[in-house]
Lab assay of single mutants.
Amino acid sequence: MDPFLVLLHSVSSSLSSSELTELKFLCLGRVGKRKLERVQSGLDLFSMLLEQNDLEPGHTELLRELLASLRRHDLLRRVDDFEAGA
Rank of each mutant, 00 (worst) to 15 (best):
S10H: 10
L20A: 03
S41E: 07
N53T: 09
E22H: 12
E65V: 10
G42M: 06
V11K: 01
D44N: 04
C27Y: 04
S69W: 05
E61Y: 09
H9S: 15
L7C: 05
H73D: 15
V6Q: 15
G29S: 12
D74L: 01
R30A: 06
R72A: 03
F46V: 04
R78S: 08
S69R: 13
R77P: 05
F25V: 13
T60I: 08
R71W: 06
V11P: 00
R30N: 06
L23M: 13
N53G: 14
L63A: 01
S16E: 05
E56L: 13
G42I: 05
L75P: 01
L76V: 11
G32Y: 05
R71K: 14
L36P: 02
S47I: 12
D54Y: 11
G58C: 08
L7G: 02
A68K: 12
E65Q: 11
A68N: 14
L15G: 02
L67S: 02
L49G: 02
D2T: 07
D44T: 06
F4A: 02
A68T: 14
E51D: 11
D81G: 06
G42C: 08
S17A: 15
T21R: 12
F4M: 03
G29T: 10
R38E: 13
Q52H: 09
K35Y: 06
R38K: 12
Q52A: 09
T60D: 03
K33F: 08
R77N: 07
L45G: 01
M1G: 09
K35A: 10
K33H: 13
V6W: 10
L63W: 01
R71M: 10
Q40D: 15
D44G: 07
E61S: 10
L8I: 06
E22K: 15
V31P: 00
N53K: 14
Q40G: 11
E56Q: 13
S14M: 08
S47A: 10
E22W: 06
V31D: 03
A68C: 15
L55Y: 06
S14F: 03
R77L: 09
L67Y: 02
M1H: 04
L43P: 04
D54G: 07
G32N: 08
G58K: 10
P57G: 10
R72E: 03
D74S: 00
R77Q: 11
G85V: 10
S13W: 04
S41P: 01
T21S: 14
S17E: 15
